[in-house]
Amino acid sequence: MIAFENVTHDYGGGPLFRDVTVRLDPGSFHFLTGPSGAGKSSFVKMCYGELVPTSGVVRLLDRELTSMPRDTLAETRQRIGVVHQNCEFLDHLSVGQNVSLPMTATGRAVSDDEFNDLLSWVGLSAHTDALPPTLSGGERQRAALARAIISAPEMLLADEPTGNLDWEMSQRLLKLMIELNRTGTAVLIATHDLNLIRLAKSQVSARVLRIAGKTLQTAGTEL
């Protein structure tokens, strides 16, 4: 699904990580952890083509990233949902319009039932007509999650999705992502919250990747 082959990323001040080789398979659940500044966000950005590697090959849904035409990249992103820590919305549009944006902006339709089910699943049914700036941090994350998965993506990428949330809200968001994974969607969560990883590992078979010392390692059982 997403494959890195000997990928090095240099942000201009030296490599952030080098020779990374990893595969994120369909239906898998991955955590990406590591200290702040280790390159977790850069790794996630490469997974949806916002960053390209300095060297090596990144394949998104079996297409090579660096040679991908812009329209193809856009189509690829329609199959990959993304949730950021500081999720951005179109603040002048309602929550409902923002959530359905991946469908409407790409000329696809979503039925009212599916849309209402989704908002209900993330607990935002009462906020459909609200504007994003009026939402709390947890509500924004859940709205971002709903937006990321409304097009039934094959992969969900979440970069520090619980960074601004309290523990209770973090657990709630994690539960939603585990439920999503059980429906077949591959999930990658970049986080430095080890408690969250431990909690998830008790509920789902998750592989933990760790960026440290400019390399990507598979974390051991110490987690």
């Binding site: 856009a74 951005e88 919305f89 790409t106």
Partner: peptide, 16 residues
Amino acid sequence: RQVISVLRLVGARDRF
């Protein structure tokens, strides 16, 4: 810029 970045993120094409 935020509008553009959100639209690109959700897979909107340049044409749109």
